[in-house]
Design a binder for these strands. Sequence first.
DNA 1: TTGCGTGCAAAGGTTTTGCATGGCA
DNA 2: TGCCATGCAAAACCTTTGCACGCAA
Lengths: 157, 157
Amino acid sequence: MQRKGGYQTKQKTLILSYLETHPDRHITAAELLHVLTENGTPMGAATIYRQLEKLEQEGLVRRYSLDDRGSACWQYGGAEAKAGTCHLHFHLKCTECGSLIHLDCDHLREIAHHVEEDHGFFIDPSRTVFYGICAKCRGTEPGAEAEQHDCCCHSHE
Amino acid sequence: MQRKGGYQTKQKTLILSYLETHPDRHITAAELLHVLTENGTPMGAATIYRQLEKLEQEGLVRRYSLDDRGSACWQYGGAEAKAGTCHLHFHLKCTECGSLIHLDCDHLREIAHHVEEDHGFFIDPSRTVFYGICAKCRGTEPGAEAEQHDCCCHSHE
DNA sequence: TTGCGTGCAAAGGTTTTGCATGGCA
DNA sequence: TGCCATGCAAAACCTTTGCACGCAA
């Protein structure tokens, strides 16, 4: 199989490159449209959607639908991508302020394992987003409130 | 506060009634539009969206955005609704066949607790959906494959 | 009677599709 | 040269908004 993804076009390169440069962000089609236009390479929306679809099929990027307004997001980091580690952890999205938190936590991986073993359901962390309210918006910032995490976890925005 | 939800109109009653009749389903605006029209009570889309928004604010229904195509769903069962227990558990959605699985599991509740305690993030189970692939679609049906669940969990479609 | 709710139509945003043209291999 | 990819425009969706009219209280 030499299905390496068809032709190598300027547009494809630019899109992938932008996603690669921001591996920790979830990027919308609108953002790509905007950024690429600003950088002097305007591009039809259709092209962006078509390329993102292909990149997704090639496993280089991942598609999320975590926007409230029904707009999808994409993130670099697929099976073939080394830099991306977001497929290993879960995402928390605050419904108040909209911030996206990446959560590396063995606890959560355990859960995925449990659900898989006992329920036969394979959870895809890369598609799954926990909705809720973050510490900042709740007013109970952990850390500012004395105690530190002592668990395996590691979170960052 | 007598904010019981403004006027009691035929449309509001019909919408709530349909949701009440299917407490275990996630219903889209399009489905409501279709069903109500078929039942001889056509209704403007705007009315449906406006009513759903109000019902949500009243806490009688819950809004999800689990459709791939960016269309939202609603489900009966809020704080004031006795019949609804879906706010207590998590939902698994199969990205292959689209089936929605309700998962009652102490394990998962523990997780929510853990994330809240150690990360300060309050997970809203009613908005959170796990995406993945169900046993049926993976071909490894638990049960048909010998072992039974022996954990606390209980799942149903 | 008062004011919220409705219906219709129009607008908004996101995503898809058709078709002729352009560019990679 | 032969396809695949692009661009543009139009269309398809889902959802929201404006405005005049209708109906609950």
